[in-house]
């Protein structure tokens, strides 16, 4: 088996340079690559275009990269939870491109499936459609949207093996599998890294062919954005 293991987040992101486009998995703060985000902050790489469903909160997730002004542009579907984001956007320091969530996910999928474009009805007749080709199939209009082209994809999985196979847990799966498929170089951080053979091939969510580097992180914070509970009766 090809061994894709790297020592840590610093080694995994070693060759990400200023101005590159990176995808980061996660939905809100759920399933985000915490360790690689910390390593990117430490490395200080700048002018990044970040493709991620959300932009984190002020002191966690992609919010950490915003605070240090390392992000030039965010490509997201929803960015509502971050005051520093809002400040940088209103002051013109940060560009943002808002994309319907399903379009975002499917543009990742298209990249991983080797398809240059998708056609989706999302955004037809709205400002999202401006400048885009519209085609009618079976009486309904669809927008043509391009597959993403990202230098790196950084994802978080629950378990992985050194061959790069990944297994996700609960709704922390979200964008991670489709982004894993979409990066020119894909980095996976996992909570538990095992040897080949320890994961059941029938239970792999992302085949190792899509993953180029993998390492085990430790002490995951996994911050909860909205803690909602019900009383015990």
């Amino acid at each position: 088996m090809i061994n894709k293991r790297v020592a840590d987040a610093d080694e995994a992101i070693r060759d990400i340079i200023d101005g590159q486009t990176i995808m980061l998995g996660g939905f809100g703060l759920c399933g985000i690559p915490e360790k690689c985000i910390a390593a990117l902050v430490k490395k200080g790489v700048k002018e990044l275009t970040c493709i991620s469903n959300n932009a984190g909160v002020d002191d966690f997730g992609i919010g950490l990269l915003l605070k240090t002004r390392q992000v030039k542009k965010m490509v997201s579907s929803y960015v509502g939870e971050n005051a520093e984001f809002e400040r940088q956007l209103l002051s013109g320091e940060l560009e943002v491109e808002l994309i319907p969530q399903g379009t975002l996910a499917t543009r990742c999928m298209a990249a991983g499936y080797g398809m240059p474009v998708i056609y989706t009805p999302a955004g037809v007749g709205t400002e999202v459609a401006e400048g885009k080709e519209v085609r009618n199939f079976n009486g309904k209009d669809y927008l043509m949207e391009y597959a993403f082209d990202a230098d790196f994809a950084i994802v978080k999985a629950w378990k992985g093996d050194t061959a790069g196979n990944l297994v996700f847990r609960s709704t922390s799966r979200n964008f991670n599998p489709v982004m894993a498929m979409a990066g020119k170089i894909t980095i996976a951080e996992v909570e538990e890294l095992v040897e080949p053979g320890e994961l059941d091939p029938d239970h792999i969510h992302t085949p190792g062919v899509y993953v180029h580097r993998i390492f085990q992180g430790s002490d995951y914070e996994k911050r909860i954005e909205q803690r909602t509970v019900r009383p015990r009766n």
């Binding site: 799966r173 909205q226 909602t228 509970v229």
Partner: peptide, 25 residues
């Protein structure tokens, strides 16, 4: 509460017998 188990409003939730989980695409 399980930080890996949230809904689209980012609230902590639970599954039910027969639930299934999948990616965003």
């Amino acid at each position: 509460e399980d930080p890996d188990m949230i809904n689209a409003g980012k609230q902590t939730i639970t599954t039910l017998p027969g639930s299934s989980i999948f990616d965003s695409a």
